[in-house]
Simulated scan of single mutants.
Amino acid sequence: MPTYSRITGTGSYLPPRRLSNADLAAELAAKGVETSDEWIVERTGIRARHFAAPDVNCSDLAVPAAQAAIEAAGIAPQQIDLIIVATSTPDMVFPSAAAILQHKLGIAGCPAFDVQAVCSGFVYALTVADAMIRAGNATRALVVGSEVFSRILDFSDRTTCVLFGDGAGAVVLEASETPGILASDLHADGKHVGILCVPGHVSGGAVLGDPLLKMDGQAVFKLAVGVLEDAARATLAKAGKTQDQIDWLIPHQANIRIMQSTAKRLKLPLDKLVVTVDQHGNTSAASIPLALDHAVRQGQVKKGDLLMLEGVGGGFTWGAVLLNF
C-alpha cells in the first residue's frame, strides 16, 4: 500500500501575558510612541497579542504545544521518530530548537532539526515531514511552529511592533494508508529580502548590523496577496481538487486584510476563513498551527474536512498545503 501522512493530533500554547491594544498603546506612550486600539484594528484586525516572559525561550513555548499534540494523537512521546521546529527565533545560534525540545520531551535518538522560512516556516516544515514519511524515513513526526518575535521588535516603530506576538503550535503527522496531505507548493524569491528582514547577526561576540525587524508593509501586502492565491491554485491543481471543495482556509495570521483578500480571490465565503489574528497577532511560523489547533478545539474543523493551509514570509518565501484532516 502507498504510504501517506495524516495529522492525528494538534496542540498550541500562548504565554500567559496578554496585551490588548490599549495595554500596548499605554506601554508605547511611556516610550514616546503614539498608537491606539482604533489605529491598530483598522489596519490589521489585531486586538491583542501574547508576549513571553524574558526568561522563556522558543523551546519553552514549544513544549506544552507539543505535549498537547502528542496527547491528542494518543501516543507516547517516545513513539515520535522525527522532530521539526519551524522558527526564526530559536533559543540560541546552535544547537537547534528542535534538539532542545527533543530533550525537554524526554525523547532521544530520532532526527531533530529546525526549518527557517519565517512566516512560511510551518508550511515548509509540514511538507518536509510529509516527504520523509512518504520516503519511509519516519512514521510519526512532530512538527512545531514556535516563535518569540517580541525579542526582535523595534518598539520605536509603531508600524511593526504592534503586529507581532509570541506562541507555539504543533501537530503530530503519522504514516497512513489513506491520504491526508494531498499536495503542497513551496516557493522563495530572494530578490525581495529587503522588504521584510532582521538584518543583524552575531560576530566576534557582538551584534553586527541591526538585530530588529524591518518591514515595508505596503510592499509585503502587495506581494503577499498575489503569491498566496497562486500557491493555493497550484496546490489544488496538483491534488485534482477545486476551490469550492475547500472546507476551511487557514492562512498565516498576519493581517486580516491580506487574509480576506486571499479568500475573496479564491471565491471562498469569509465564513470558511479561520481567524485568530485578532487575539494572537502575527506569531510568524506558529500562526498556522495555532489557528488550526484553535479551530479543532472550538469544533470548527472536523475529521474529514478539506483544509488549505498557506503562508508567506520574509525571504521572500511562500507556500500552501492541501490536506484531508
Rank of each mutant, 00 (worst) to 15 (best):
V118F: 07
I133T: 01
R134D: 05
A141P: 00
Q79V: 14
A72I: 00
Y13K: 14
S120W: 08
S59Y: 04
V128Q: 11
R47E: 15
V225C: 04
F51C: 09
G11T: 13
F51I: 09
D271R: 14
A129I: 15
N137F: 10
A125M: 07
K272P: 01
S176F: 06
A206L: 14
A99G: 15
D185V: 03
G121P: 13
A129V: 12
V321N: 05
A73I: 06
H201C: 13
L196E: 10
Q218G: 06
A112G: 09
R140N: 12
G217C: 11
V128P: 00
L266P: 06
W39R: 12
T139E: 01
A320G: 07
I152N: 07
M1T: 12
T235N: 00
R49W: 14
L186M: 15
S156V: 03
Q218L: 08
A170K: 02
C110Y: 10
G281L: 13
L153M: 15
A26W: 09
D81H: 11
H192V: 01
D114R: 07
W39P: 02
Y4A: 03
T139H: 08
A99I: 12
M215C: 12
Q67N: 04
A117Q: 12
A48W: 14
K191F: 02
L309M: 10
E177K: 12
A68F: 01
L153F: 01
G299F: 03
L105P: 08
I258P: 00
Q116W: 07
F149Y: 15
L306G: 01
D114G: 09
P269I: 05
I181D: 02
V198N: 02
F113N: 06
M92A: 15
F122P: 01
